[in-house]
């Protein structure tokens, strides 16, 4: 079974600091990590490989430093890594990203499964997975808690809020993986050392036959007007009195009045 996992390198939000005056993210010195959900996708791919054999390839689009994340994935046990780095890819929105990833997947001659995390922790759109499926013309099975492959079909347990349902599709397919799906392994040290020695090819727009008009900022229909952090304002305190039941009723009524319920 051939599996391709798409990962994104993101700032470690645990260590994010905000400029209190401008409300902007302070990016200087911020460590980068593999997007948390994407690590779950990597783990799911490695478990499938252990069960069914085959090969896992990881791809990532981003600046040269994404090589570090690709080597981390190699350390976890991934067989091959491909880096998509080109100025033409910079500033891509979800559509341009999925378009570029789709070209890379095709360049790799496709796969039985393409896995991604549900969403990136720096954008939280959850759109790249479905848009990639669309670009590849494959079924999308999103929000996967578990993945089972049986012959030429794949079965996924999907988490949609409080609802859990089972989806089935023929291979090949695209799956986005939830954080609760698994606990990503800590890379064994021997694999980490080997990962440092492996070749990580860098593919540019021309390598994957991408039209620059469809990549990066140029190919992105989304236009970002402004990023701001919401202002925290102090609300009024309202105290309810009465018996426990009365207080509960008043509290629920208040929540409804404020449209929280």
């Amino acid at each position: 079974m051939n599996i391709i996992v798409c990962i994104k390198q993101v700032p470690n939000v645990k260590e994010v600091k905000w400029d209190p005056d401008t409300g902007n993210l302070i990016r200087t010195g911020l460590p980068s990590i593999i997007n948390v959900n994407d690590k779950n996708a990597l783990e799911a791919a490695l478990v499938l490989k252990e069960k069914h054999g085959g090969k896992v390839t990881v791809i990532s689009m981003g600046p040269p430093q994404v090589e570090e994340s690709l080597r981390e994935a190699l350390g976890m046990g991934v067989d091959e890594a491909v880096q998509l780095s080109d100025k033409a890819f910079a500033g891509a929105d979800c559509w341009a990203t999925s378009h570029t990833l789709a070209l890379a997947v095709k360049k790799l001659s496709g796969a039985d499964l393409v896995l991604l995390g549900v969403e990136a922790m720096d954008g939280n759109t959850a759109q790249v997975g479905p848009e990639l499926a669309e670009a590849l013309g494959l079924p999308i099975l999103s929000y996967a808690l578990s993945i089972d492959v049986d012959g030429k079909a794949v079965k996924v347990t999907q988490k949609l809020g409080d609802v859990v349902r089972v989806l089935e599709a023929d291979l090949p397919a695209v799956i986005t993986v939830e954080k609760e799906a698994n606990e990503p392994r800590v890379a064994p040290m021997d694999c980490v050392l080997e990962a440092c020695e492996k070749d990580v090819p860098v593919w540019k727009a021309e390598t994957i036959g991408a039209d620059e008009e469809n990549c990066g900022l140029k190919g992105s229909p989304t236009r970002l007007r402004k990023i701001f952090s919401p202002k925290v304002t102090r609300g009024q305190v309202e105290l309810f009195s009465g018996s426990l039941d009365e207080v509960a009723e008043k509290f629920v009524a208040k929540l409804k009045e404020l449209y929280y319920l």
Binding site: E68, R71, E72, G75, V186, A187, M189, V192, L193, A195, C196
Partner: peptide, 18 residues
């Protein structure tokens, strides 16, 4: 080196997890 940093990062992850 890059390899040293990866060993450091992996050991840190192991410590936090295990």
């Amino acid at each position: 080196s890059a390899a040293n940093k990866m060993i450091q990062k992996t050991a840190k992850e192991f410590c936090e997890r295990e």
